[in-house]
Computed example of a mutant assay.
Amino acid sequence: MQNAIDIIELIKIVILGIVQGITEWLPISSTGHMILVDEFITLNSSAEFKEMFFVLVQLGSIFAVILLYFNKLNPFSFKKTKEERKSTWMLWFKVAVASIPVMVFGFALNDYINEYFYNPWVVAVALIAYGIIFIWVENNQTAKHSYTVKTFDELSFRKAFFIGCFQSLAIIPGTSRSGSTIIGALLLGTSRYIATEFSFFLSIPVMFGASFLKLFDFGFNFTQAEFIYLIVGMLVSFIVSVIAIRFLLNYIQRNDFKAFGYYRIALGSIVILYFLFNR
């Protein structure tokens, strides 16, 4: 990239930030969508910067969670009673336990996944597979009326750990970090609301860790243009994420996740057809 700002490139960055902000929280795979969008809106940048951008732009989404849930996640708040502060600390401990599997698998398999799985075919298959799983889980759980965990106090450390194991499946592009977490939580008996919020909270340590590791690998040798593109992408992602999170929380109070399952199947099928006929 050059030091001068390219307006067309900036528009691409804004579009990618919008895609990231929407798809990070809806269980439809942000990484998968970013890879697919990049097929049509290719950044005029080095492969290294593009790879780093796709990870660091997620920080904008994380700051949206921190803003919206600051009081709920703050164990030092004087507005909370002693029991409420204790409950908040316990929630953080559960988040820490649930983060262990993805840190282990992510560290061990990151290079292998990047080399062999970051392509539209894997994304398409993962989109369809998880779409089917979402529909099956919703039909199965609704029929059994088996939502036994309706508060975070009722969420055990054991279940939190297994939810984290499901989250680790999201290292495969197209699966969706939030989608994997929500599916695991639903299978383990949590309500849709608890499953969704826990997926939000789990994103904080995982995505902060991934972002800082990627930034460390890339270094701080940004051009002026690259730095501006990154900040703009994160800002757009932050604003759109606030809207997307509020939408999802309102949506699941009256609906299940099957609509996202059908969307994933439709999108995955379109992607397969596109690449079959165009390559």
Rank of each mutant, 00 (worst) to 15 (best):
I15L: 13
L16G: 10
G17E: 08
I18T: 15
T23F: 07
I28S: 08
T31Q: 14
T31S: 15
M34C: 06
I35N: 15
I35Q: 14
L43P: 07
S45G: 09
E48I: 02
F49V: 00
K50D: 04
E51K: 15
F53Q: 11
F54S: 11
V55G: 11
L59D: 06
G60H: 02
F63W: 13
L67S: 12
L68P: 03
F70P: 05
N71Q: 12
F76W: 12
K82N: 08
R85K: 14
K86N: 11
T88E: 06
T88Q: 08
W89Y: 13
M90S: 09
W92A: 01
F93E: 14
F93M: 13
F93C: 09
V95I: 15
V95M: 12
V97S: 09
P101N: 12
V102L: 01
V104N: 03
F105I: 13
G106V: 04
F107G: 09
N110F: 05
N114V: 07
E115S: 14
W121G: 07
V122M: 12
Y130F: 14
Y130L: 11
Y130T: 09
N139T: 00
Q141P: 01
K150D: 12
F157K: 13
R158P: 05
F166A: 01
F166Y: 07
Q167T: 04
Q167I: 03
A170C: 06
A170M: 06
I171Y: 11
I182D: 03
L186P: 02
L187A: 00
G189Q: 06
S191A: 05
E197A: 07
V206L: 13
F222D: 06
Q224I: 02
F227T: 04
I228A: 12
I231V: 15
V232I: 14
V236S: 07
V242I: 15
A244W: 06
I245C: 02
D256F: 08
K258P: 09
K258I: 08
K258E: 13
A259K: 10
A259L: 14
G261C: 08
Y262L: 12
Y262W: 14
Y263M: 01
R264A: 04
L267F: 13
G268T: 03
Y274L: 10
L276T: 14
